[in-house]
């Protein structure tokens, strides 16, 4: 359900990688991406996050706990508000199931329902389903350096390899040179049109790594200020039992 969070997580996991103490000058774009994927896919994470959605009718806050194994498998459990509490969502590769305690039904989300915005956020289910292994699916190019939010950044440009099945044809990262944290990500359509934008406002350190604390996910085609996500806490390299990613776990 926390689609924004998930999408953000995919980029944010790649942000994690940039914190690696190797100087970026020594690495090619491909190497950076490989490290992103290696790092990302090997680790399990358990996090609690808050999503703040500002709509025309005011602001809503949604919290959830999420278990993730790489980008392929995630399990989300909503904690608040009361209406969403107990709602669970399981994503395994390109399949998505949702469970609500009120209905006691497990329903697979498919077709045009995937295009719906979830939680009223700027992200859709399609965004949620997005889980590319960046080094396999994208060609990368370090296009230069820029100062972003008063930090010196490398600018990385990723373009989908021919035939790869990815949602965004190209991506652009602004990576902090010191902390190796991407402070901004732009997501583009095949035509080169900017579709989504992730920007970090605040960072924090977890186990010696720099992490985004607060960031915004914005569908640039839509009106509004976007959806804000705050990582309340995160446990990295966590052991997550396999049953967590089963349909049975949704009903538990």
């Amino acid at each position: 359900m926390n689609a924004i969070y998930m999408t953000a997580l995919s980029c944010f996991c790649l942000l994690v990688l940039f914190f690696s103490p190797v100087w970026a000058e020594d690495l090619s774009g491909e190497e950076i991406l490989k490290r992103i994927d290696d790092n990302f896919l090997s680790s399990g994470s358990i996090s609690v996050s808050t999503m703040i959605i500002t709509g025309r009718r005011g602001t809503r806050t949604i919290t959830s706990r999420q278990w993730a194994q790489g980008t392929r498998k995630t399990f989300t459990h909503f904690l608040s508000p009361p209406r969403e509490k107990g709602t669970k969502m399981l994503k395994i590769e390109d399949a998505l199931w949702i469970y609500t305690p009120a209905t006691d039904r497990l329903i697979k989300i498919a077709g045009h329902m995937l295009r719906q915005s979830l939680m009223g956020s700027d992200a859709s289910y399609e965004d949620f389903m997005e889980d590319p292994e960046l080094n396999k699916t994208y060609d990368v190019n370090i296009s230069g350096t820029e100062t972003y939010l008063d930090r010196a950044c490398y600018v990385l440009e990723l373009t989908a390899k021919p035939g790869s099945k990815v949602a965004y044809h190209s991506r652009k990262f602004w990576v902090d040179k010191e902390r190796f944290l991407a402070l901004r990500e732009d997501l583009f359509a095949k035509s080169g049109k900017l579709l989504k934008k992730v920007t970090i406002q605040e960072v924090f350190r977890v186990d010696g790594r720099w992490y985004p604390k607060r960031f915004t996910f914005k569908d640039v085609l839509k009106d509004g200020d976007g959806t804000q996500i705050i990582i309340d806490n995160i446990e990295l390299d966590a052991e997550i039992p396999e049953y967590m990613f089963s349909k049975a776990a949704l009903r538990r």
């Binding site: 790869s164 949602a167 965004y168 095949k190 049109k193 579709l195």
Partner: peptide, 16 residues
């Protein structure tokens, strides 16, 4: 206006 769709590979495309 912007039109957005997914191509055969599931990649978003958008065009004016």
């Amino acid at each position: 206006f912007v039109i957005r769709w997914r191509d055969a590979d599931g990649t978003f495309d958008a065009i004016e």
